[in-house]
Every structure is written in C-alpha cells, then in structure tokens.
Design a protein around this nucleic acid. Sequence first.
DNA 1: CTTGACACATACCAACCGGTATGTATGATG
DNA 2: CATCATACATACCGGTTGGTATGTGTCAAG
Lengths: 206, 206
Amino acid sequence: MYDAAMNVHTKAPDLTRQKLLEAAFAEIHRNGFQAASLTQILADTGLTKGALYHHFPDKKALGLAVIEEVVRPGLAAVMFAPLADTRQPLAALQALLATKAAEDDPMVVTLGCPLNNLMQEMSPVDEGFRLQLNAVFRDWIGVVVAALERGKAAGEVRHDVDPEATAFFIVSALEGCIGMSKNTQSVTAFRGCLAQLGRYLDTLKC
Amino acid sequence: MYDAAMNVHTKAPDLTRQKLLEAAFAEIHRNGFQAASLTQILADTGLTKGALYHHFPDKKALGLAVIEEVVRPGLAAVMFAPLADTRQPLAALQALLATKAAEDDPMVVTLGCPLNNLMQEMSPVDEGFRLQLNAVFRDWIGVVVAALERGKAAGEVRHDVDPEATAFFIVSALEGCIGMSKNTQSVTAFRGCLAQLGRYLDTLKC
DNA sequence: CTTGACACATACCAACCGGTATGTATGATG
DNA sequence: CATCATACATACCGGTTGGTATGTGTCAAG
C-alpha cells in the first residue's frame, strides 16, 4: 500500500523502465540505433528480454521512448532553458556557446549530439523516427525563434533578421560544428568552430 | 593481348570492381555502412560473394575503398574544383551555394552528404574509418583555406580572417545545413539555410 | 597442348540479431 | 485464503549477417 513499505526485493517497474531507457540511450549514443544491441543493453542493466519486452513492444518503441524521455528532456535542460524568457537572445546564445566551449572534455566531441546522430542515421530510413526527431528539432527552432523575436522587440536583434531562417541556421551550424569536431576528435577545433558561430551571432546585433 | 579484342564474355575485372564500388556507395548512402547489406549490393550488381571477396578482403576494406575511390573524387569534382586557383573565394563559394540551392531535388536533402553521413556514423565506432574520412575532410578544409588566403592576397577577404577556423566553420555549417534539411526533408529550408551561410560569407568581405 | 594464375560462382557456416512463448515469483484485491 | 494481473526470467526460434571453402570456366604464357 505504502511505497515506503516496499523493500529492495519489491518490483519497481518504473525504475526498471528508467534503467532500460538510460542504458538504451548510452548504447544508442555509442553505436547508433540500428547497430544498438538489445543484448548489450540488457547486459548493462542486468535485466533480461522479459523485462525489456514487458515495458516496450519492440526495439523501435524503445528508441522512440529514448528520444522522447531522455534526449528531449536533456536537450531542453541544456539548450532550451537558457533561452526561455530571455530578452537578450544573442547574449544568452553566446553564453551558451561559451559554456559548451569551456567543458574540458565535451562528450559531444567524442560521441556527438544524440539528437543529431539519430537524425542523420534514421531520417532517411524510418519515417516514424524522422517525424519524432523533427518534432524535437522544431521545438528547438521554436525556442530560438521566440527568443530572437523577443530580442528584436527589446532592441538587441536587428530588425531585418528573419527569425525562422536564422534560428534554423544557428542550430544547423552548431550541429555541424559538433559533427565535424567528432570526426576530428579535437576540442580545440570544436572551440574554434563555436567561436566562428559567435562571430555570426554578432552580425545579428543592432 | 589487345583490350579491343576482348568480347563481352571476357572478364573485365576493374569494371566489375567499379560496379561493386558504385553499388556499395549507393547502398551505404541509403543505409549507412554498418547497416549496408553485402547481399543487397550483390543483388544490385548481379554478382556474387565470390566476386566481392576476390576484389576486397572484407566489408571494411570495401567501405574504405568507397570513401577513397567514390566519395573523395565526387567531392573533389563538386566542391574542390570550383575553388581551385580562384582569387575570389567568397564569390566562388557563393556561386557554389547558389548552384546547390538551384537543384530542384537535391539528393543531399533526401539522403544527406555521403561524407558527413559516414563521419557521423563511423567516427566514434572505427578509428580506421575516422582517419580516412578525416583525411578527406582535411583536404576539403585545405582547399578552402588556400582559397581564402588567395582571397586575402587579392583583397577580397578581410585581413583579420583566420583562414583555418573560418574554413572549418564554413564546411561545418554547410554540412549542418544539409543534415538538418535531411531531417526536415524540405528543400525550402535547405535553401534558407544556405542563404544564411551566404550572409556569413558576406561578413568576410573587405 | 599443358599449365597455371586469374576471375569469378556456388554452397555453406557460425554468430548474432530482434522477437516470442512460456514459466514463475510477487503483491494487490476480493 | 483464493484469484489474478503484474513484472519479470528463461529458453528458444527463424532470419540475416559477414565470412569462408571449394568448384569452375577463361585466358595468357610456355
């Protein structure tokens, strides 16, 4: 009756589900979705096929759940939150880039951006994935667009800036920087690329 | 003795090899390297395992050969050549973007850039792939760097432009635009993104 | 005319994949 | 106390994968 009365032997379904999601996220981040091995995920969690297929109907559903319940919240916390309600989106974006550049060993350089990785791999292959990833991507764009519009109203952003196209480019360029740095495996190159993106942002200022 | 004396029934090993490379390229472009099926490649070519493993020791060697003998030349023809010997790299790059934007149904929007696709997928997974892809990428950067330096000497490019970092960013942003457009499956978005990249290029002008 | 390297085709294999069918311990409910 | 759904574990299956071993036809050289 009481959750507190449950001991360690008691089944905790949503905790199990969460463990599956996180292990799946890590495995997918390392190897991509198609190459992700369910066996490996189960080995990481110490669970079995029974547990996995109790919580998810198939591999694709697991992948979509990872996008919705791990990738999206993670991105929201890191990329969306700093831009919410800001009247100075350019300054906020610069600060965001600075934060990213300041990390001494960014995982994005090693394994790339989880969202972008999945978009590159799955968009042409599976329409379901494409749409769900696109929803996250569009939300991201939407956050940047709203911030840019507030910036225009507040006088930080030039009036001839097209929020939609600009937001699309900012996110695209950022993902591009991450992607190329992943191949180069160079944090220095990553920082240099972010700096150039910062230069572009400066051109949007009033 | 004479090549001309060979009839259609005569074995033409390098033609067979070429057919394998092109079919492998298409299959990899569609599904990525790891998900690329050798069986499918053979079905496309009408050849068999015997032919494949006569010309290539294993799947990885086939993939690397595709990079070196299909991806690299293709990229060189489209992206490197227009920048060679130009004294006005910014104009040349703008023209290049315009050409890309003018295509009515760019395959890059459907399937993405073959080089970038492979970089995103294989860089964290296989060091051999990473290095070979990085060599092509570095060549690309090198071409842009050289063009930017000539542009500086010719007075088209501003003197405070860092050729290396700028070239890295230009290529990154371009690949980013392609990648995001691939997810969105929108030629319009692709063109808008390229236009923003063009705006960035304008800021490099003297 | 024989030999032998080359350029494939055919047949086959172990490993792994995602997925399923079934068994079982647990705990809430009536 | 009996019942029953939940939450897993175990065992298993068909299909596909990359890779190999072997067979065969062709052609050039000696």
